[in-house]
Computed example of a mutant assay.
Amino acid sequence: MSRSLALLDTQIDEADQRLATTVGQGGANFVQNAILGPLADKRTATLDRIAIAIGRVAERPTGLDALAMCTLKDSGADQASASASDTATATDTATATATASATASGPSAEDFVDITTVARNVKKVRNRRGASTGTFVSKCGVNAQRRFNTDNVIVAPGVSNGAHHTHDYVGNDSTDFQSTDETLAAAGTSCTNGDLSTYYWPVLRIQDGTEEFDANRLGGGLEGNVGRIVTAEKATITFKGSPVGKVTAMPRFLRIITGDAKAFTNGTANANAHWSCTGFENKVQLTDKYPLCPSGSKVVRSFAFQSCWDGQNTDSVNHRTHVAFAQADGTCPSGFKAIPQLVMRLVYDVPATPNFAVDGFPEQAHKPITDHDDFINVMSDKLMNRAVRCINTGRRCG
């Protein structure tokens, strides 16, 4: 059933992509006949499979087919109207609609907080005897080359603009929607130690009126992601150990997503955002607020990835169940084994004013809780084994 639930999200994403790429096509009923109608048919079939699956273990639910129909939001209605006119008019309408929505789509002043007013909230798990206390660092740069795209090869392989927002990329040189295990393994890397892994996260922008290169593109201004893209001053990629024991090697091509790009509407179950300021990281970590830092301090985004693996799969249908977070005492859940924990730290020099935000899906209003990070392990077995040895023997390597 989890596969069917994930498919419902995929179907919506594909319909959104089709809406965005067919502006100006067809007549007045094009959107309904070519996009919404087929989407309803697909959702009906998927919901029927879900009902059958539930019926095998409990009373089969009725009425799920009522959930199959989808309607356009206001911006979508504008697009549908534009589809009935000529291409030039449609493009102008879509751009104007996107620009207008971008202005009002967030963040708001309530999304920011003066970090000096927040009480200490950081707690740490103490290491036990036998803990793996070493670290392994990959130095992969800060994306000074401005390698951007709006794809997400983990969630939407083969789909251009699958993320609907722009990502920074470091590590593997070839990552985009067309990437495969084979192309990633054959590519170059920005990492100085030969780490071919791919690391990518939503860009941070200052909404200062600057028109970036993507101001009139999908994933950028046409989907509410506006302003000047800020390159991190520092991007630290560190693999750490377990506080309760040794770690085992990650499998090559393991995929991990941490955080939830749709946490504002999905709820916080999968959220894993961490915001702070230099000098405050060991005291305060924010999840649902952007920090306003005092003079001399800089904004820090950090991501502590899942550190437990099911021992079998490099991915899962929902891209989550094959990995897990350690429990409160530092141990992995039953059936999972500890692997090196990827911890990323990004430092930004931005003004202490409420006008910066991460890229995101339009409906997520650029909320700080939607921050997320993606990783595909493409280290050679030799390099991964070296990392594990360093971590398990308490050394600092990289």
Rank of each mutant, 00 (worst) to 15 (best):
S174F: 09
F336T: 07
T192K: 13
D310P: 08
V244T: 11
L47I: 03
T370C: 15
D310G: 10
C390M: 03
L383W: 00
T210V: 08
N385R: 06
Q327H: 07
A163R: 05
Q341L: 09
Q178H: 10
T393G: 02
M250K: 15
N377G: 08
R345E: 11
H366K: 14
T150R: 12
V358P: 00
R18T: 15
I54N: 05
R3C: 03
D195N: 10
K234M: 01
T87Q: 11
T192Q: 14
T95A: 12
N270W: 07
Q207N: 05
R49D: 14
N272M: 13
S85A: 14
T331N: 02
V170T: 14
S4Y: 11
A34E: 15
A66L: 09
A131K: 06
T44M: 13
N149C: 01
H366T: 08
R129P: 04
D41P: 10
A232T: 01
R128G: 01
S190C: 00
V57Y: 12
T238A: 06
L346F: 06
A156P: 01
L342R: 04
T268L: 13
V317R: 06
R301V: 00
A387W: 06
D288F: 02
V137P: 00
I256A: 11
V125M: 09
E182F: 12
G188W: 04
V350C: 04
E233W: 01
A261K: 10
P340M: 05
T116K: 13
A131W: 04
N385F: 00
F148K: 02
S276E: 08
Y290V: 06
P354S: 00
V125T: 10
N266Y: 14
N318A: 12
K42C: 13
R205P: 03
H165P: 07
A66M: 09
S242E: 07
D260G: 05
E59A: 13
G224C: 03
R395C: 01
T268P: 04
D181V: 11
M250Q: 15
R217L: 07
L47P: 00
E281I: 15
L8F: 07
F280E: 13
G171H: 11
N377E: 05
A235P: 00
V378W: 02
A20F: 15
F375G: 02
T99C: 07
N161Y: 03
T166A: 13
V300W: 02
A232K: 00
R147L: 12
T238D: 02
A40Q: 15
T258N: 15
Q312A: 14
T22F: 06
A338W: 04
N377K: 04
L342V: 07
Q312M: 09
L346E: 11
